[in-house]
Design a protein around this nucleic acid. Structure first.
Lengths: 347, 347
DNA sequence: GTGAAAGCGCTAACAG
DNA sequence: CTGTTAGCGCTTTCAC
């Protein structure tokens, strides 16, 4: 354990140097693990450092080196557990690289006075991880001239910025195909209106699967809805009003699926006996839903890790292996889907 | 919109000074809103700052002033949505104070090599928010001599460190009393073994409510269990093996309650027709459980806000109004509890 | 009101 | 191998 020195303030490199009877740069060299220090000198310095519990002042180092060791993670909001594993993954990798993660929540505030854009400029951070960025945010970031990586890039496809995404199209395709394989023909999709690219890809995947099965696309079965519980609920209520309701519902994400469950339960329709439901994301609570929800797994931890890894490479000016990665989704079968043949018919 | 200057690098205060035709300290004064600058000079400097999109270098300022504007939030882990509103609340207040939040997840790593304790020492942060700290962590933090605030202090009651907690005892009491008022007499509690102070208070509240109702404490009804789903599940399975099973279950937290639901569902026991269940925390998903879970609301956003507010005061050396706050919990009635009289009896 | 001078703690370049 | 010198960009006395 480090011994406390009499003064309240932490020792500086200068004091350590004086006590060890060497010059300041020598201490600095020891601190930075440089080889051009005599073994004996190194040991003496190390002993003093240990004894006085010396720790480098980061601000001074940052000023000198032009790097702060800080990475900013910018999220639209902090009240959705969807983001948690992304946070965790990014945090892990950033820490492994000896840096720290600064958290920013934009709350969808006007980009205009977005503080984080200044943070990108004032050299207080080395790089930025931007989750669900808008087109405008990306533009401003490009001008700031600091390394950044996009997570769930919502910008145009032409954008060549480093980014990490998931296979939303394939996810939508696979989810729909799963229902198709179970014999379902009238399959609804919820989440049509969401302007995010992931939402657009999901519905495109849904349509492609239908198309591959030579099934027509029924606009009545494509419901509006943002990625939240209440929209899943309303869409389901509407769906059940239809002359010919669907036998299966593909919810654009798990929150919506929870709303689907709630609406169905209110109407006395049981899952999967009378309705098959599939979600997207594989949030933890879907495993304990009743019945457990079949869903598409979105590799969120890996999303955070991959993005952070690219950013760290960028910061260290080692070109990353690939600056644009797409992580695969996969189907998680649980108990919310059933073959149409075994499913009871509604009047 | 700030115009870009020809050079790639951001302008420094020196360049701004030169362009505006004033000295460096004058620019600094303008930047810091000092009054001893002629109106005309100020405007000229401001114009140049605006035009060149100048932003202060934080590292330099931090070095000079000894403050970094960074607050470290240290969490045991990042994979439990319980922490999310705490994060959000802390983030809000920290940002309102013009500072930024650095995130650290200890993953319950040995305190020995805890990096965050160094961060506390190296002047790279101005203060620390410690969630669910161990006794040892607190001791080390006290030695580090930097402001800190504890959230969910698990340390001894004697500890006088600034802290924010919730009324776990009252929560336990109210939850139990609610069940008692409903006519239940055999009420189980899950979460006995958890060593955290909140767990201890909850069971104490449970016992006190029983005691107040002149009911004996049956050790068989006090189940072991950490605050997770699986332990709630196992405890429930065990409870149902009892010769005389409980008619109501008080789960130490919502994750456990989810496990209770799962076990009950497997056994074909319906909630609340055959078993009343109450949880603790009021996590978002409890509202969409089936049936929606009655639970004790833990004000987590406020926890984060309050802790951050105290820390900000401490950092600014304004003594906070109170350095030790306890936030009230309250009952959220939903549909998982029913009067014993209306509840079906199990064989 | 304004600016010259000093220095926060550290690292990099180079001379010895 | 070691130490001297020179700043990184900013804020702070303190003369003028």
């Amino acid at each position: 354990m480090a011994k406390r020195h009499k003064t309240d303030s932490r020792p500086t490199i200068a004091e350590i140097a004086q006590i060890a009877g060497v010059s300041i740069p020598t201490v600095s060299k020891v601190l930075n693990g440089r080889t051009d220090v005599a073994q004996q000198t190194r040991e003496r310095v190390e002993r003093v450092i240990e004894e006085y519990g010396f720790v480098r002042n980061r601000a001074a180092r940052a000023l000198r080196k032009g790097k702060t060791g800080l990475v900013d993670l910018v999220l639209p909001r902090l009240d959705d557990e969807y983001f948690l594993p992304i946070l965790e993954g990014a945090s892990q990798v950033v820490r492994e690289a000896g840096m720290r993660l600064v958290l920013t929540s934009t709350h969808y505030h006007s980009e205009e006075d977005a503080q984080w854009i200044n943070d990108a400029t004032d050299r207080s951070i080395d790089g930025i991880l931007l989750v669900l960025p808008t087109e405008e945010a990306i533009e401003r970031l490009e001008q700031a001239g600091r390394p950044f990586v996009l997570i769930h890039n919502q910008g145009g496809l032409l954008n060549m910025a480093p980014s990490v995404r998931i296979t939303s199209w394939e996810g939508g395709f696979v989810a729909t195909q799963h229902l198709l394989n179970l014999g379902h023909r009238r399959i609804a999709y919820i989440g049509k209106t969401s302007p995010t690219r992931d939402a657009i890809e999901r519905i495109a995947g849904y349509r492609a699967a239908l198309d591959a099965a030579h099934l027509p696309i029924d606009p009545q079965l494509e419901c509006a809805g943002e990625f939240n519980e209440i929209d899943g609920y309303h869409a389901t209520r509407a769906l059940l009003q239809l002359a010919e309701p669907p036998t299966a519902i593909f919810a654009g994400n798990d929150h919506q699926a929870a709303g689907v469950y709630r609406a169905l339960h209110e109407l006395g329709i049981t899952v999967p006996d009378e309705m098959s439901v599939i979600g997207f994301d594989n949030l933890p609570y879907t495993a304990i839903m009743n019945p457990p929800l079949t869903t598409i797994h979105a590799p969120r931890l890996e999303l955070g890790r991959a993005a952070a890894a690219i950013l760290v490479s960028l910061i260290n000016e080692k070109p990353p292996e690939t600056a644009r990665v797409v992580l695969p989704t996969h189907l998680v079968e649980r108990q919310s889907c059933r073959p149409l043949a075994q499913q009871a018919h509604r009047p």
